[in-house]
Simulated scan of single mutants.
Amino acid sequence: MKVIVCDDEFLAVERLERMLSRIDDIVIAGSAQNGRDALALIAEHAPDALFLDIEMPALDGFDVVEALAADPNVAPPLIVFVTAFPQFAAHAFDTGAVDFLIKPVRFARLEMAVARVRDVIDQRDARRRLADLAGQLSALRAEGNDNVGGANEIWVHRRAERIRVDLDAVELVRAEGEYVRLFVGEQSFLHRASIGSIAARLDPGRFMRVHRSYVVRLDLIAKIRRKTAGGYSLLLVGGEEIPLGRLYRADLLRHAQG
């Protein structure tokens, strides 16, 4: 968990950093002694959490939170307020703060605050994974519906978008674990599928499986190279070199000869 500490008192920053360094899996990305520097550090490091003093000159802690909320280009960290003034607690929690620590901060209380931050991060990640899964399921359903008419296309999920990919326009397919990457011109798209299932949907007169991890469009093969150490590779028109698997070599050589 990446954190930033902001307090206008240097000794307070130093003390809090020292205690945070005793907690496992905490990375202190930086510290600031005023709100403006804190905002700059957040934009640079994108921390998970900000331990933020409230009473500071120029921009106080509440001003920092308002500035973060108003900036659509910055992912705001989770906020833990740290202050010597308990009367700010109600306002602090109204801003959406995860926790509120009173100076001098005790180590056991700091551990509790860190645990709360971790819980929020875990819940947020779980919601994001669920949203991604829902998007993938929607894409699969759409793909199934679209294929009823015989169109040779699939829908891929990318962030908040679903993008239609014409399989006839694909130039190269590369396996990446449980996914395949489809190369189309200057773009590439990650899709959850096996390379075998994609190969089965490509025109066998235009595409060929050349390796357990690659399918290539035949008109993009510029050269078949024999390596000095043995084996073969393919040089594509764009300059990329990919391996030619032993099990697929005979079929490609026959294609090249005929």
Rank of each mutant, 00 (worst) to 15 (best):
I4F: 00
V5L: 08
D7V: 03
D8F: 07
E9S: 08
A12L: 07
A12T: 08
V13E: 07
E14S: 13
E14Y: 03
R15F: 04
R15Q: 12
R15V: 09
L16M: 11
E17R: 12
R18E: 14
M19P: 10
D25M: 02
G30F: 00
A32M: 03
A32W: 01
Q33P: 11
N34K: 07
L39M: 02
L39K: 03
L39A: 03
L39H: 03
I42C: 01
A43D: 08
H45S: 04
H45W: 00
A46C: 04
A46N: 06
P47L: 06
F51M: 07
F51S: 02
L52C: 04
E55L: 14
P57I: 04
P57G: 08
P57N: 09
L59C: 05
D60G: 09
D60P: 09
G61E: 02
G61I: 03
G61W: 02
D63P: 00
V64H: 01
V64A: 05
E66C: 13
L68E: 08
L68M: 08
A70R: 02
D71C: 04
D71M: 06
A75V: 11
P76G: 03
P77D: 06
L78H: 04
L78I: 01
T83M: 08
Q87S: 04
H91A: 06
A92F: 02
D94W: 03
A97V: 05
D99F: 04
I102C: 07
P104G: 10
R106A: 14
R106M: 09
E111W: 10
E111F: 11
M112V: 09
M112D: 09
M112W: 01
A115M: 05
D119V: 00
D119H: 06
D119K: 08
R127L: 15
L130G: 12
A131K: 06
A131W: 00
A134C: 07
G135S: 15
Q136H: 12
L137F: 15
L137P: 10
S138Y: 11
A139P: 01
R141N: 14
A142G: 12
N147F: 10
V148G: 07
W155Y: 09
V156T: 07
H157S: 12
R159L: 14
A160R: 11
E161A: 13
E161M: 12
R162Q: 15
I163M: 13
R164I: 02
L172G: 10
V173N: 01
G177F: 00
V180F: 01
L182P: 08
F183P: 03
V184H: 07
G185T: 10
Q187H: 15
Q187L: 15
S188L: 05
L190K: 06
H191G: 09
R192K: 13
I195Y: 08
I195A: 06
I195E: 11
S197A: 15
S197R: 14
A199C: 08
A199S: 07
R201T: 05
R201G: 08
L202N: 02
D203F: 02
M208H: 06
R209G: 03
D219T: 03
I221L: 05
A222Y: 06
K223A: 12
I224E: 04
R225Q: 12
R226D: 12
R226S: 13
R226Y: 06
R226N: 12
T228E: 15
G231A: 09
L235G: 08
L236G: 09
E240G: 12
E241Y: 08
I242S: 12
I242G: 11
R246Q: 13
Y248F: 15
L252M: 09
L252F: 10
H255W: 15
A256F: 07
A256I: 00
